[in-house]
Design a protein around this nucleic acid. Structure first.
Length: 227
DNA sequence: TACCAGGTCCTCG
DNA sequence: CGAGGACATGGT
C-alpha cells in the first residue's frame, strides 16, 4: 500500500477535515484565498500549538482576538505581561509570548507586517528565513508555509511519525520524514493540507504510543497498540 | 495521580 | 550530531 492509497483510505474513513482549523475555514474547501488577518492568525496558532493541545490554543486565540492583539503590530508593541496573560492557557506562555514578539517584529520590519508579501519568494528561501527566527522550528515553519502561505511543503509532526511507524517505516530527522512523503506524493497543496489533517485525526483516534517513541523516551513505557 | 498534548532551544559529551 | 532537560497549562 503506497502513501497515496493510505491517504484515500483515511479520507474515506474520516472524511474531509478542513484545516487549518480557524473559524473561517470550510472543511474540504481549499481554494479560497485567506485574508492577511487569517494568515496571521494561522501563524500565531502554529506557534501556540507547539507541543500543546489545540483546545488550549483556541482559548488563547480568542483572548488575543478580544484584546485586539491578533495582528503583528499589536503584538509587537503590546506589554509583555499582557501578551503573556492572554496566551497563558496554551502553555509555555513566557516562551511563546517571546516567540510571538520576535515573529511579529520580524514580519513588520522586513515585510511590512504582511505574510503574503513574505511568501513571494521560493518555498525553500521562505523556509530558511523562518527557521532562522528563534522559536520557529521545522514543523512550525512548514505549518505556516503550507496552511497560511499555500506553499507545497509537507508538515511532519509526532502523529506523522507514529503513522509511518504503524507501517513499519522509521526514519531519523525531520527532513528525512518530509522527503519520504514529498518524494512519493504529487505536489498538491490541498492534498498536503488534507493529508496532514487526516493524520492528526488518525492520531487522535489511536491514543497509544508506538515503539519509535519508546526509543526516544527512555523513562517511559511504550504501550502495545491494540488493533 | 501521572501522563499527554499538532515542538523548540540549550547544554553537554 | 544526539541525547537529555526545561519550558507550562488543561484534560483525562
Amino acid at each position: 500500500m503506497n502513501l497515496l492509497s493510505r491517504y484515500m483510505k483515511l479520507l474515506r474513513h474520516y472524511g474531509p477535515q478542513g484545516w487549518w482549523p480557524t473559524p473561517y475555514y470550510r472543511p474540504g474547501v481549499y481554494s479560497r484565498r485567506f485574508s492577511e488577518r487569517e494568515r496571521f492568525e494561522i501563524c500565531v496558532g502554529a506557534i501556540l500549538t507547539q507541543n500543546t493541545a489545540w483546545k488550549n490554543v483556541e482559548k488563547a486565540i480568542k483572548c488575543l482576538k478580544a484584546a485586539k492583539l491578533l495582528n503583528a503590530r499589536a503584538i509587537a508593541v503590546s506589554p509583555l505581561a499582557k501578551l503573556q496573560s492572554c496566551i497563558r492557557s496554551s502553555g509555555y506562555y513566557k516562551q511563546k509570548a517571546k516567540k510571538l514578539k520576535i515573529f511579529s517584529k520580524w514580519l513588520i520590519e522586513k515585510y511590512g507586517g504582511n505574510f503574503a508579501r513574505f511568501c513571494r519568494r521560493s518555498t525553500l528561501v521562505c523556509r530558511q528565513k523562518l527557521l532562522s527566527l528563534w522559536g520557529i522550528g521545522p514543523e512550525t515553519a512548514d505549518s505556516m508555509l503550507l496552511f497560511a502561505g499555500h506553499k507545497p511543503i509537507f508538515v511532519i509532526d509526532a502523529y506523522t511519525r507514529r503513522f509511518l511507524a504503524e507501517y513499519g517505516v522509521r526514519l531519523g530527522t525531520y527532513d528525512e520524514y518530509q522527503k519520504y512523503f514529498m518524494d512519493k506524493l504529487p505536489k498538491s497543496v490541498s492534498m498536503y493540507k488534507e493529508y496532514h489533517a487526516l493524520i492528526v485525526a488518525w492520531g487522535k483516534d489511536h491514543k497509544t504510543r508506538d515503539v519509535s517513541e519508546e526509543a526516544s523516551h527512555k523513562g517511559t513505557h511504550g504501550l502495545v497498540r491494540a488493533k
